[in-house]
Design a protein around this nucleic acid. Structure first.
Length: 578
RNA sequence: CGGGGCGUAGCGCAGCCUGGUAGCGCAUCUGGUUUGGGACCAGAGGGUCGGGUGUUCGAAUCACCCCGCCCCGACCA
C-alpha cells in the first residue's frame, strides 16, 4: 500500500475522551473511530489487524476440528422464550419490535439459534461430536461502555458451540478447546492466564476464563504462588486466619453513632476480624424471589455478591433499602445476624467463631460475645467472602495474589442447560432418544485488538507483534530524485513477492513525520531508503524502537527475512499458559 | 440508575465568573523556500458556540429544560 493513497487519519493529540492507552492509540493511529456510545468503525488499519487475529483464530479452530458457519444478528424472541432467557437476560438484551409487531432482539450470544439449528438436523449419535463456530458482531447493551474496544456494546466475537452424546465427550472437547485457546493466545503474543470462572448469565457447570494480564483490566483474578490454582475473584476460594475474640455471654453495648466497621473497631478497640459485617439484600429470581436475606462476613472481608447469588440460587441481588431492612427487624448501620427475621447466610470463616461483635438490630447498639453456633442457630454457612491478597490457597496452602486482567476468552461446559429446553435430541447407539450435552467457547476478537495494544506499546505508539501488524514493513523513502523512487518501487515489489505486507511511505513529508507515523501505527520493521545511502549502494533496516543498520541494496530482502525471524523468535513462547 | 465533569473550526483548548463584532495551537488549501526524527515565510478558507425555551436593547456568556460524551459509583449496614 502506498501511504499517500491510504485512508489512515492520524491524530497528533490524544483525544480528550479516551482514558486507557489502547483506546488513545487506536484512535490516534487511525485504527478506529467512534460512531456512538460503545460502537466503533474499524478503519482499514483496524480491519487489517482484525483479519490477522481472525486468521489465527480460524486456523486453530479448524485445526481443532471445528467448522465455521454464520448466524444472524437479529434473533426472534420465540427462541429466547423457549430457553427461558427472554425473561432472565435483563436489559443487556436489546429488544425491539418490527413492523409486524414481532418481537426480536440483537444477539448478544447464540446458544438459542445454534440449538434451534442443530435440533432440527440432529438425528443420530453418529453426527457428533459437532463443533460449530462463527466470527461475527454481537450486541450487548452494556450499562456503561468504556475504554474503547475493551468494553463496547457492539463487538466482534468468535463463538463456538459443541454438541456431544456423552458427558465424557463434552469433557474431552472442553479440554480440546482449552488447549486450542492456549495456542491462540500464545500465537497472538500475549501474556495471559487461564482461571476458573463463574458461569454468569450463560449458565452451565465448569468454566474457565482467559485473561490478558494488564493493569487496565476490569476483572480481578486470584492466583496461588505455590500451585496452579487461579480463579476469577467472583469465584476464588481461599482460607484466612480466623482470630476469635474473647468468648462470653451475648451482651449489648452502646455504640452511639458508630455504624461503620472503622467506627465500631475504633470505639470498642477490637480487631475488625472479630466484627461481623451483616449486609441485607433483596433477592431477584429463584426460590427466594422478592425476599430479603442477610449475609455475614468478617469486618475486614468483603462480600462477593456473585457467590451470594449462587449460594441462594438467585438471578440477582441488590442492597435492600431502609424499609427492606426494617421489614426483617433490622436497622441500617446496626444490623446483626442474631434475632433478625430472614434467612441468614454466614461466611465459612465464621463457622464456630466465638467472641464476635455484631450489630444489635437497635439504634446505636452492638452486641459482643457472639458465638455463631449458639446465637445464630439458623445460620446457613457458605463461601461468601472475596479473596484478598495474602490469603492461603485452599489447595496447597500457598499464598494468594491478585492481578488485574482483561477477559479475552471463556470456555463453558454447559451440559444440558440449553439442549434440554430446546429439545436437542438424538438416537443413541442403543436406539434410545437422548438429549445432547453442550459446550460453548468464546473469544473477544475486537477486544483482543485492544488487549494486544495494552500489552504492546511505548511512548511513541503501538508496537505490534510482527504477525499482528497491519503491515510488516514501513518502507520509508527519503530525499528526492528518481533513484530513491525507483529503489523503493523495486523493494516494494520484491518484499511483497517474499510475502511481506508493506506500507510504502512515498508522501512528500519530512523524515521526522514519516518516522513518527510509522512508530505510531506500530509497524514492526523499518526500511529506510535515502539518496545518501543509495550512493553507497546501501539501505537501512531495523526493528521499530531499535537501531537501524546499513545493508547492501541487493541483500535487503534477505535482511528483512532475517530480522522477521528474529522478531518471531522473541515474540513466540512468552505466553504464560495455564 | 445515583454523583461529578464536559460540550466553542477536523483535533487539542482559551473566552463564560463580570452579557457588547468568536480567538489560539495543530491540521487543511495556495505560492515560495526547505528536506535524515512531527520545518519556515507569506497568504487563504473553515464555527447553527450540542439543541430548545426564556431573561435582556443585545446571550458562547445568565436561567430552565432536553440531548450527547467522559469519569466515579451502583459491595462494607
Amino acid at each position: 500500500m502506498k501511504y499517500s493513497q491510504f485512508f489512515a487519519p492520524t491524530l497528533r493529540d490524544d483525544p480528550a475522551d479516551a482514558e486507557v492507552i489502547s483506546h488513545k492509540l487506536l484512535l490516534r493511529a487511525g485504527y478506529i473511530r467512534r460512531v456512538t456510545s460503545g460502537v466503533y468503525d474499524f478503519l482499514p488499519l483496524g480491519l487489517l489487524v482484525m483479519r490477522r487475529i481472525e486468521a489465527v483464530v480460524r486456523e486453530e479452530m479448524n485445526a481443532a476440528g471445528a467448522q465455521e458457519l454464520l448466524m444472524p444478528m437479529v434473533q426472534p424472541s420465540e427462541l429466547w422464550q423457549s430457553s427461558g432467557r427472554w425473561e432472565k437476560y435483563g436489559p443487556e438484551l436489546l429488544r425491539f419490535t418490527d413492523r409486524h409487531e414481532h418481537e426480536s432482539c440483537l444477539g448478544p450470544t447464540h446458544e438459542e439459534v445454534i440449538c434451534d439449528l442443530v435440533a432440527r438436523e440432529l438425528r443420530s449419535y453418529k453426527q457428533m461430536p459437532l463443533n460449530l463456530y462463527q466470527i461475527q458482531a454481537k450486541f450487548r447493551d452494556e450499562i456503561r461502555p468504556r475504554f474503547g474496544l475493551l468494553r463496547g456494546r457492539e463487538f466482534i466475537m468468535k463463538d463456538a458451540y459443541s454438541f456431544h452424546a456423552t458427558e465424557e465427550d463434552l469433557t474431552r472437547e472442553y479440554q480440546n478447546m482449552f488447549a486450542t485457546y492456549q495456542r491462540i493466545f500464545t500465537r497472538l503474543g500475549l501474556t495471559f492466564r487461564a482461571v476458573e470462572a463463574d458461569t454468569g448469565s450463560i449458565g452451565g457447570n465448569d468454566s474457565h476464563e482467559f485473561h490478558v494480564l494488564a493493569d487496565s483490566g476490569e476483572d480481578l483474578i486470584a492466583h496461588c504462588d505455590g500451585c496452579e490454582y487461579a480463579a476469577n475473584v467472583e469465584k476464588a476460594v481461599s482460607v484466612r486466619g480466623n482470630p476469635d475474640g474473647e468468648a462470653g455471654a451475648l451482651s449489648e453495648v452502646s455504640t452511639p453513632n458508630a455504624s461503620s466497621v472503622e467506627d465500631v473497631t475504633a470505639f470498642l478497640k477490637v480487631d475488625a476480624a472479630v466484627l461481623v459485617k451483616t449486609l441485607v439484600y433483596r433477592v431477584t429470581g429463584g426460590e427466594l424471589d422478592e425476599q430479603i436475606v442477610a449475609a455475614c462476613v468478617r469486618g475486614d472481608d468483603q462480600l462477593q455478591e456473585v457467590k451470594l447469588i449462587h449460594a441462594i440460587d438467585a438471578d440477582a441481588v441488590e442492597m435492600a433499602d431502609e424499609a427492606g431492612i426494617a421489614s426483617v427487624g433490622g436497622i441500617g448501620g446496626f444490623v446483626g445476624p442474631a434475632g433478625i427475621s430472614c434467612k441468614v447466610l454466614v461466611d465459612e470463616s465464621l463457622r464456630g467463631a466465638t467472641g464476635l461483635v455484631a450489630g444489635g438490630n437497635k439504634h446505636d447498639v452492638h452486641v459482643t460475645g457472639m458465638d455463631v453456633a449458639r446465637d445464630v442457630p439458623t445460620a446457613i454457612f457458605a463461601d461468601l467472602r472475596e479473596t484478598r491478597a495474602g490469603d492461603k490457597c485452599g489447595r496447597c496452602g500457598g499464598s494468594m495474589g491478585l492481578s488485574r486482567g482483561i477477559e479475552v476468552g471463556q470456555v463453558f461446559a454447559l451440559g444440558k442447560r440449553y439442549t434440554e429446553p430446546m429439545k436437542v435430541r438424538f438416537h443413541s447407539q442403543e436406539g434410545r432418544e437422548e438429549t445432547a450435552t453442550m459446550g460453548c467457547y468464546g473469544i473477544g476478537v475486537s477486544r483482543l485488538m485492544a488487549a494486544i495494544v495494552e500489552q504492546c506499546n511505548d511512548e511513541n505508539g503501538i508496537a505490534w507483534p510482527l504477525d499482528m501488524a497491519p503491515f510488516h514493513v514501513a518502507l520509508i523513502g527519503m530525499g528526492k530524485g528518481d533513484e530513491v523512487e525507483q529503489a523503493c518501487a523495486g523493494l516494494y515489489k520484491d518484499l511483497q513477492a517474499a510475502g511481506f505486507d508493506v506500507l510504502w511511505d512515498e508522501r512528500n513529508e519530512r523524515p521526522g513525520v514519516k518516522f513518527k507515523d510509522a512508530e505510531l501505527l506500530g509497524l514492526p520493521l523499518q526500511l529506510v531508503v535515502g539518496d545518501r545511502g543509495l550512493k553507497e549502494g546501501v539501505v537501512e533496516l531495523g526493528a521499530r524502537g531499535g537501531d537501524r543498520r546499513a545493508v547492501p541494496l541487493n541483500e535487503t530482502v534477505a535482511g528483512i527475512v532475517a530480522l522477521a525471524e528474529t522478531l518471531r523468535g522473541v515474540g513466540s513462547g512468552h505466553g504464560a499458559g495455564h
